[in-house]
Computed example of a mutant assay.
Amino acid sequence: MRILHYMQAIDFRHGGPPRAVVDQVATMKARGHLAGLATTVVEDVPDDWLNDDAQAGGAPEVVRLPPVGGRLNRLSAEGVRLAKEVVARYDVVHLHGVWETSNLQFAAACRAVGTPYVVSLRGMLDDWAMNQKSLKKRLYLAFGGRRFLEGAASVHCTAEYERIQSKARFGRARSAVVPNLVDLRPYFDLPSPDLAKAEWPALTRKGLKVLFLSRLHPGKGVDMLIDAVAEMRRRKLDVELIIAGNGEPEYEKFLRARATDAGIDQNVTWTGFISGDVKLSLFAAADVFALPTMQENFGFVMFEAMAAGTPVVTTDLVDTRDEIAASGGGVVIPRTVGDFVQALSEFASGRSDAAAMGVIGRKWTLENLSADRVAGAFEKLYDSCVDRG
């Protein structure tokens, strides 16, 4: 099958979705499909996909479009021409995101040539997301967005809870729930904690090691986690907090001051942005991964933690909350400091067995999010879209 993906920017600084698109294109190509990628920003497109002879060497086709521009960040006339040209060569087009006006232009190109398209919502129609700049979003849906969604051969949700929240906003469009593709190959062999322990000695101290690994952003709840750890230490529980990630300098300064004011600056380790082997090692060195987030669509990092054998504590505001709870490798709780104190204290006291939960969560993740299983579900989705077209 000929499958084209369009995402306006392939830039991993924007979070998990660009990584998911790259992994999905690569996986479909490896499974024998003619997979392609169209984008206006190739920042994190693999270098070997961009060489002049890349396709001859078996790489996916990459269509580089002119940058979007103007007040509405639309494709130029040349960009629209290229979009029409490329979508006509494919059996199905997978569009990622809701609010980018270039997606509406790609959808119009698909309709013009009769190529069915799928839209991945990426959490953008969730209740929490819709409450941010809500008037602007309602106007967008009224003036083109709703037609864009209802014209899709299928709307793709990554979890059933996302579909429940979003259904009223994408109207009569058909929908399907398929988890994101996660590259689990680095987790097939359990990583060693030694690299991380050598880098950050706090990981060798006694007590519970709580890891936060994500962007340092107010919506991620790092401040709540600092407050929770401070309260646990006031209760004489041994606990260390490792904060991995970066964000706006002023916000990071605020977080560091909060830890100091709470009296736990000596019990908080700041690693900055990490990736690769040291990231895997840090997962392995931690006892539990905690994410007090306001909202997540899929939450790649939580399933990476589980794949590494590290249990997860997160909020009931993530779309994959039911999957995490059902896996046996995670705890889903209300988003309050008190609830995080209680859940983490259960691990610190040993009443919750982190090692046992880690084993169960790892097994569930490697089975339920395997490339074969998820890619097979996407293939069925694409087949159904082409049949309907």
Rank of each mutant, 00 (worst) to 15 (best):
I3A: 13
Q8A: 02
D11M: 07
F12H: 10
H14Y: 14
P18W: 13
V22R: 03
A26M: 05
T27E: 14
G32V: 08
T39M: 02
V41R: 08
P46V: 04
D47C: 07
W49E: 05
L50Q: 09
D52C: 11
D53W: 15
A54L: 02
G58W: 15
A59I: 11
L65N: 05
P66T: 07
V68W: 01
G70V: 00
L72G: 03
R74N: 03
R81Q: 07
Y90T: 00
Y90I: 04
D91L: 00
H94T: 06
L95G: 01
L95V: 10
H96N: 15
G97A: 11
V98R: 08
S102R: 02
A107E: 02
A107Y: 01
A108V: 04
A109I: 08
A112S: 15
V119C: 08
L125W: 13
L125M: 14
W128C: 01
W128R: 09
N131F: 08
K133A: 11
K133G: 08
S134T: 15
K137E: 05
A142D: 07
A142T: 08
G144H: 00
L149Y: 05
G151W: 06
V155Y: 10
E160T: 09
E160C: 03
E162R: 06
R163L: 10
Q165F: 07
S166E: 10
K167N: 06
A168W: 03
F170D: 04
R174K: 13
V178T: 07
V182D: 00
F188Q: 12
F188V: 07
D189M: 12
L190I: 04
P201D: 06
A202N: 10
K206C: 04
K209R: 12
G219K: 14
K220V: 06
G221P: 03
V222N: 05
V222S: 01
A230R: 04
A230D: 12
R233L: 08
L237S: 02
D238M: 10
V239R: 02
I243C: 09
N246D: 14
E248K: 15
P249F: 06
P249T: 07
E250V: 12
K253E: 14
A257L: 13
A259D: 00
A259R: 03
I264H: 04
Q266G: 09
G272D: 01
K279H: 11
K279Q: 14
K279F: 06
L280F: 10
S281Y: 04
F283Q: 01
A284R: 08
D287M: 10
D287W: 02
V288H: 09
F289C: 03
A290H: 09
L291S: 06
L291M: 15
M302F: 00
A305V: 08
A308H: 08
G309V: 05
E323A: 13
A326T: 10
G329W: 14
V337A: 03
G338D: 15
G338Y: 14
Q342F: 12
Q342G: 07
L344N: 00
F347W: 01
A354F: 02
M357R: 03
V359P: 05
E367N: 09
R373K: 14
A375D: 00
D383I: 03
C385M: 07
G389D: 07
